[in-house]
Nucleic acid binder design. Sequence first.
DNA 1: CTAAGGACCTGTCGGC
DNA 2: TGCCGACAGGTCCTTA
Length: 271
Amino acid sequence: MPELPEVETTLRGIEPHIINVQIDNIIVRQPQLRWKVPVTKLKKNLPESRFRSINRRAKYLFLNLNKGTLIVHLGMSGSLRLVEKNTKVEKHDHIDIIFKNDHILRYNDPRRFGSFLWAQDPDKHPLIKNLGPEPLGNEFNALYLSELARNKSVAIKNFIMNSKVVAGIGNIYASEALFESGIKPDRESRAVKLNEFESLVTNIRKLLNKSIKNGGTTLRDFVGGDGKPGYFKQELKVYGRTGEPCMKCKKPLININIGQRSSVFCKVCQK
DNA sequence: CTAAGGACCTGTCGGC
DNA sequence: TGCCGACAGGTCCTTA
């Protein structure tokens, strides 16, 4: 499942191959994703057109055409990859965008939590317009976070995973960043100090950038747009390491549920 | 308004 | 082997 670095990796993998290439057709085999795929609109707008640019907002990909934008989210298990014409259609290959050069952009998503949407102006789309700042942008900083957290009792881990607070921090990077910053994931947000927010912001940026550089986190069988696996998994210090020794103090890592998500941390190193 | 819980869906893994 | 429950990278919506 794609966290932000996987989405960025996907973007970089597909971008050079699909920009300004004329689209021939779109095939939707399964329109029931997180939101129903607007098949008629896509059939009307994609064929004979071209993607002019691609960008990312949170974990959404914006594939921009002249007359509007295809918004793609990979959900929990989605992938978007380029395949050659006549590549065998596998289970859960829900959508194909076929180009005139015989390449196909193929969307596969076993759990179907992802989405394919159409918008004239993506920034005004209901799912997009209320998103918080990008974690790699300047608006996301310690002062912003600490002011927003002032009266919040919600656990700090939930706070930074809330897309209205900051867009695109998932379970892995929330867990990892809190470990790096020595903050217990279930601490009340209002009890986090400004200098701790500074550390958190720095670590979130560091982790995301490092993972992007390494082509995303490999979990199960994630592959980027070019089909190459990511290499970041071996860098994870707490996620998926319940019971294993903390890399700082060697005590076994604890797993608790916060907001129905597993949260691994070190009782000694995180306060 | 905030915070917590439920919902969507399929695949995999561990235990019995 | 087979069955069953727990759990998995997301995040919006509903409820209290």
